[in-house]
């Protein structure tokens, strides 16, 4: 028994994929691991959003107190008379409801308020470095994703080349089968070899699709990671700007606040007291305005970003579901597509 000579060495050749091999399950696991980093950062941003809300509420309250001080001293909040004005004013200071002004030292109150405001600005400023660290984490993540993308692209090319070789072998075996008697032992032997080639073709054309799909998915992941990094960088820069401005104003206001507090304790210089409070109000205004702006930022950007990531999840899940329907028809189409792609690349 001897048929036409066909070199079958190709069937035994080891295809040099890099990494740990790929399957639908392993690809899903790897992508989920990469996504975990993003989810973590999104979590940090969500926490920041919640904290931002709290800081905004606290600042609004403090600003209100300062404005009441200021308005009162400006003569705009005294409709109910002098004592009513004082009492209303004091009602905005924690723990002072119902007390008369003479019972509290204005200097002490202003220093307490100054301390609170300084702490509030510092709390916000503390997020700047945290955000910069997060940004760096994401850039590191992008480097890792890039390595993955290159690895997937190389493996896809390996798979495509092998598929082309298998296709040629398949053709050679088809030609050889034509040359022998149908139903003969030689013909059966060639058919057995063709089945082996088909099985290999099926396996590696699946790899073409998996590596190709992985490359695209990692590229999408990189894009969303980059967006997240930019979001975090912009937010960090904005917080840095406003906290720097607010703390400079507070530093500059401290001496006035103390001087005016002391003067007010001596029941004098109400007008100057108002001026000093205006300086402090301005500092809180800068901060509050920013915090308010970032609320809009969070609403418009963070939620959109999360939605985009969800959409990305849905589309990849759908792709994986499709992959799991391993019907013969789909497999054949996949093989055909892989061959078509490999042929096109070989021609190009």
């Amino acid at each position: 028994m001897s048929g036409p000579k066909v070199d079958l060495e190709i069937l035994n050749r080891h295809v040099a994929y890099t990494g740990e091999g790929i399957s639908v399950q392993s690809l899903e696991t790897d992508i989920q691991q990469e996504r975990a980093v993003q989810d973590n950062k999104i979590g940090e941003l969500k926490e920041l959003r919640d904290r931002n809300v709290n800081v905004q509420k606290a600042m609004a309250e403090e600003l209100k107190k300062l404005r009441r001080f200021s308005d009162y001293l400006n003569g705009t909040a005294t409709r109910g008379g002098l004592m009513a004005g004082f009492k209303e004013l004091l009602s905005y200071i924690p723990g002072l409801n119902g007390l008369v002004l003479s019972q509290r030292s204005i200097e002490e109150l202003l220093k307490q308020q100054y301390h609170l405001s300084a702490k509030r600005v510092k709390e916000a400023a503390e997020y700047v470095d945290t955000l910069k660290k997060s940004e760096q984490d994401l850039y590191q993540e992008i480097d890792r994703i890039n390595e993955k993308i290159v690895e997937m692209a190389k493996n896809e090319r390996e798979a495509l080349n092998y598929v082309l070789e298998l296709k040629r072998l398949q053709q050679e075996l088809a030609d050889a089968e034509q040359a022998v008697e149908a139903g003969s032992v030689e013909a059966r032997d060639i058919q057995a070899k063709r089945d082996k080639v088909y099985a290999k073709l099926a396996e590696h054309s699946t790899n073409v699709q998996l590596y190709g799909s992985a490359e695209e998915r990692y590229a999408l992941l990189k894009e969303s990671t980059r967006k997240l990094g930019e979001t975090i960088r912009n937010l960090g820069q904005d917080i840095q700007q406003y906290t720097t401005a607010a703390s400079i104003k507070l530093d500059m206001a401290s001496a006035q606040i103390q001087a005016i507090g002391r003067a007010a304790d001596s029941s004098v210089v109400m007008l100057e007291m108002k001026r000093s409070l205006d300086v402090m109000s301005e500092s809180m205004n800068v901060t509050t305005q920013f915090v308010s702006d970032t609320q809009v930022f969070f609403r418009s950007n963070l939620d959109t970003l999360i939605n985009d990531l969800n959409t990305f999840d849905e589309s990849t899940s759908a792709l994986l579901d499709e992959n799991l329907k391993t019907s013969k028809e789909i497999e054949q189409r996949r093989i055909a597509r892989a061959i078509e792609k490999a042929t096109a690349e070989a021609a190009g």
Partner: peptide
Amino acid sequence: PNLATLTRVLTDQEVAQDSLTRM
């Protein structure tokens, strides 16, 4: 040292633990 300076370290002490946890 004035009010701003002494307040700086006092408020730093107040935020220190939270910041260390975050870092």
